[in-house]
Write a protein that binds this DNA or RNA. Sequence first.
DNA 1: ACCGAAAGCGAGGAATCCCTCGTAGCCTAC
DNA 2: GTAGGCTACGAGGGATTCCTCGCTTTCGGT
Lengths: 208, 208
Amino acid sequence: MPRSSSGYQPRKTPVQRRSWRTRERIVTGAARVFAEYGYAAGTTDRIAAAAGLSIGSLYQYFPNKDAILVVLAQAHLEQTAEAVEACLSRPRPAREWLPELTSAVIRLHADNPRLHQVLFEEAPRPPQLLARFRQVEQDAVETAAALLRSDPEMHVDQPELAARMVLATIESLTHRFTSRSHHLDTAHLTNQIVTMTTAYLQTCRTPR
Amino acid sequence: MPRSSSGYQPRKTPVQRRSWRTRERIVTGAARVFAEYGYAAGTTDRIAAAAGLSIGSLYQYFPNKDAILVVLAQAHLEQTAEAVEACLSRPRPAREWLPELTSAVIRLHADNPRLHQVLFEEAPRPPQLLARFRQVEQDAVETAAALLRSDPEMHVDQPELAARMVLATIESLTHRFTSRSHHLDTAHLTNQIVTMTTAYLQTCRTPR
DNA sequence: ACCGAAAGCGAGGAATCCCTCGTAGCCTAC
DNA sequence: GTAGGCTACGAGGGATTCCTCGCTTTCGGT
């Protein structure tokens, strides 16, 4: 728990080129430390050491430990939002965007599953982060629902519900099969998730 | 992190009736505290207070904080194993056991989702617990695969893989939709999960 | 009623951990 | 070249947590 002043804003904005690099070193070092030690044992001392930095310098850039975690989490969140945007921005049938989106989500997580687990499950998520999280999720659901509604090959009964289920399935199964070692390679996993969600969507056809 | 002697065995076995009740008070108190405060802030002091007990007495029954958590987690694990056993013990079509199993899993989690989240995601899971976890999972997969193989209404191509996907989907979606408040009531959630997994299984038919 | 053992008590030791603050080095603009 | 701000340092304060240990209270059989 942070004992210091509240807030997660950066303490000072770097002006010299040197300090920009230092900030980057802290963030990437923190990613390594959190992934290896988890949240609780990922101490600020360790993060500073991993960044090749003194503890005092670290606190020139971040007001507290959680602020570093927030930066990491937000980066992942924005990456995800971008991927969703890229897959769902233009209208096209689910047959096209479903495999693409699944593959993108898996790719985003295959990178460093343990870190994501720490960021979004183990660590405490500040309200600010949670709000953005929900927003990205809600946007994705609404966009996907719209695509389903105008899908010429697919007539699902309740697009909102179907979209939520499909997106939840993609993300949940991705988390599950990348975090623990279930020896399911990326290609097979993508295949299985696409099979499952496609089958589901086809079952949700409106009876006519 | 535990500073004390390693191991998670109970420190002493109760002999008087009084102490059996005390042990129970500790476990139920810990469940409340972990659910409310999470793992890190669920201190042994708080647990002792919730159990109406002094900290010293608590350590007469458990060698360290994690040992209490292990008891809670194992209880849930065994409950799950029983539910799986009850649903998959005798051969019958997926049409019958799939809704039953889904409903049972959801019922087990609807109880206290926050506690399960703490037990299996937030808290560190000792190897002993992880081993049992994998064993229960593997048993369930193998049993379900056997059922799928002998299912007269369903001819899935790779029963092992299909069973793993189905079970993973049931558990993952249950966790997801019970932990965060997604205003999906139990009945609808069951329905959706059954729809999804059934649709998946029917897609996995062996071409003949 | 008595006694040995079981159960209960809680102040405090030892170990971390987060973060501050006084000090020292470095860089850029002039 | 030098002044003044920007960056880096790291010992240690303050807070928190897990767990121990010496002592007291309660129980159950005789």
